[in-house]
Write a protein that binds this DNA or RNA. Structure first.
Lengths: 110, 110
DNA sequence: TCCAATGTTCGAGTACCATCGAACCAACGA
DNA sequence: TCGTTGGTTCGATGGTACTCGAACATTGGA
């Protein structure tokens, strides 16, 4: 596998939530930008990556979405030039019941 | 305040949980050593700092206990040469219901 | 008074993380 | 075919976090 480089139409890395250490899940949530993304996703439905304008560059946004995805928190659907992200609510609730609600219940900026 | 240095009998910094950003709480929990400490504390009761032997030096242990304390997760009682630490369960449960249980429900090492 | 026990702080090393601009890729339309 | 759009990756930078040994402070006992 010398130089696979760009991941264009490659399979996205979306691990099973139970294979992700809880510390990685918590670390993924322990960032302001990512938490804003999760809050937005928690409204339900799918969002194109570009939806999330939280004062960071698109490179940084892409990075955060990758962290969330690889922590097993989101799923991404590729469609055309866009990617649609959604929260893996049920799996999250099944494995860590109450976690997401507790995090979302927190005041946004305190 | 030229040289206060050691904090010996100073007041310990134990913020109100509601004054701590949720990201700081999550970050405090997003570490293996600290999670082991929290698991031990979750048994209930008080533990002297020295109780926690999780393969780190006492300097590192002291650091982690400080992080937990300043995240509003633990309370520390000074008695003689020892310090007794306990989990602030009720406050945690009141502010972030389900969070602790969800974290503790996770498998210890996965 | 001296010493051992319990923790904390300091300084330094290392590693990791968030951030950005630039370069890039793939898909779509004109 | 060419440019635009949506998004990722690369490389670098600055900051932060974990870790340790050494030095220190405090208490309590011999």
């Amino acid at each position: 596998m010398s130089n696979m480089g760009y991941a264009g139409h490659m399979e996205l890395h979306e691990p099973e939530l139970r294979d992700v250490p809880i510390t990685a899940v918590l670390a993924a949530l322990a960032d302001d930008v990512r938490l804003q993304i999760v809050r937005a996703l928690a409204q339900g439905g799918e969002y194109a990556c570009g939806t999330f304008e939280f004062g960071v560059s698109k490179a940084t946004r892409s990075h955060h979405l990758k962290v969330l995805r690889e922590a097993g928190l989101t799923r991404t659907r590729v469609a055309g030039t866009s990617r649609y992200v959604r929260l893996r609510r049920e799996e999250l609730e099944r494995l860590y019941p109450g976690l997401l609600d507790a995090v979302l219940a927190a005041p946004a900026h305190a």
